[in-house]
Amino acid sequence: MLTSYRRTGGSTFRRSIKGSSKPTTGSRRTRNVGDTTSLGGGLAGGGADGVVGDVTIGAIGKQDPVAALSAICSEIADRAAREQRDLLPKELLAFQKAAELIANERAGEIFAGDASSSSIGDLLTADAPAEFGIGNSILDAVSKVTDYVRNAVSTLGFDAVRGKLSPAVGLFIGDVFVYLKEGEIRQKIRAEVRGMLTKAHEAAKAGRGPLVIVGHSMGGVILVDMLTNPGASQLPADLSVDALLTVGSQPGFFATLDLLAPNPPNGSPRRRPDCVKNWLNVFDPIDPLAFRTDMIFEDAEDFAFNSVTGIIEAHSKYFQRPQFYARSRKRLRELKVL
């Protein structure tokens, strides 16, 4: 998915299109392994020995409240999607409460005391009108996340889901070949992206806020490919991107295969696009379709986004977690983009 943002005061406008660090050169890798900065929150291991003993969500919340709280909210959103409905008022309030706590470094409050499903639900809906109650959907979400934790930390988990994962990987590879092959479909994709980028660029020039672009999965690859050589992509000559976020994406991997556009002459073909001031690459360590970039591209920064979920779900969960928005906003403020 590719998303372009422009901000006006407190509002954010978004448009999206959905697409479906160095690999081995000596010891260099693009896979999501090794030491990186954390975007904030997560389960990168368990205790000091990397083993998680108690896998209830309450226990996980005491270890890493941000990741646990985000996982609960993601399951709340998933349930609404499965039931083909909007979030209920109590569910929306719980999500908003979680985002506020994460932004204010207070996520641990939800997992104080016994951290049972009911106590977590009570705290998430503490500010809701009495008639809303906790609701079965919130209690069910708190309980169900424990299953995801067990899947994520189990060494048997990958073998159990391999058959389900393979079709998803196949579809992704199909999307890659469609984009990389010169032809009408590739040009249509680039034209759509070009239109969105141009519109957002014009809004930024008009003083309506910084230009922050987000690309998920193949959307991030397309963005890096086009922004690396904006002239060949027919983008505005004065295009200036304040921040590029690639999320669960693969530009590092495809760059090492020489499948992306090289930088213009007289420069390294492995540097951050010249029109991009800041590049943050966010990945979940258990996302099989997410790759690092900082060992391939100069001036790209990788941020681990560890979450409580299963291997199959990891690739699509980034934007359902309040920690993604709270932590990304914090990083952008540190860079003085926002």
Score class of each variant (00 low, 15 high):
M1G: 08
L2W: 03
R6V: 05
T8H: 08
K18F: 15
S20N: 15
S21A: 11
P23H: 15
T24P: 12
T30D: 14
L39D: 07
G40N: 08
G42P: 07
A44W: 14
A44V: 14
A44T: 13
D49H: 15
V55D: 15
I60L: 09
Q63R: 14
P65A: 07
V66K: 01
A71N: 03
A71G: 07
I72V: 09
A77I: 12
A80S: 08
A80M: 04
A80L: 02
R82G: 09
E83D: 10
P89G: 02
L93N: 13
A94M: 02
A98W: 07
I102N: 08
A103N: 10
E109L: 09
A112I: 08
G113T: 02
A115G: 07
A115Q: 04
S116W: 11
S117G: 02
S118H: 13
D122W: 04
A130V: 12
L139G: 06
K144S: 07
V145T: 09
R150N: 14
R150L: 14
R150V: 13
V153A: 10
S154M: 09
T155F: 15
G157S: 10
D159R: 13
D159C: 13
G163W: 15
K164F: 13
K164G: 13
K164T: 12
L171A: 14
G174H: 11
D175C: 14
V178G: 05
Y179W: 01
G183R: 05
G183M: 01
R190C: 05
E192C: 11
E192N: 11
V193A: 02
M196L: 07
E202F: 09
A203C: 11
A206T: 08
A206Q: 08
G209C: 04
G209L: 04
P210R: 00
P210Y: 02
L211N: 00
G215W: 09
H216D: 01
I222Q: 06
I222H: 06
V224H: 06
M226T: 00
M226E: 03
L227D: 06
T228W: 03
G231N: 13
G231I: 11
S233C: 11
P236R: 07
A237E: 14
D238M: 05
L239Q: 01
L244W: 01
L244S: 04
L244V: 00
T246R: 05
L260Y: 02
L260D: 02
P262W: 03
R270N: 12
V276G: 03
P285C: 11
D287K: 06
A290Y: 00
D294H: 12
A300I: 13
E301S: 14
D302S: 04
F303C: 04
A304Y: 00
A304E: 05
N306C: 13
T309W: 05
G310T: 03
A314P: 04
S316I: 10
K317T: 01
Y318F: 04
F319V: 04
Q323M: 13
F324T: 02
L332I: 06
L335Y: 06
L335D: 01
K336D: 07
L338H: 00
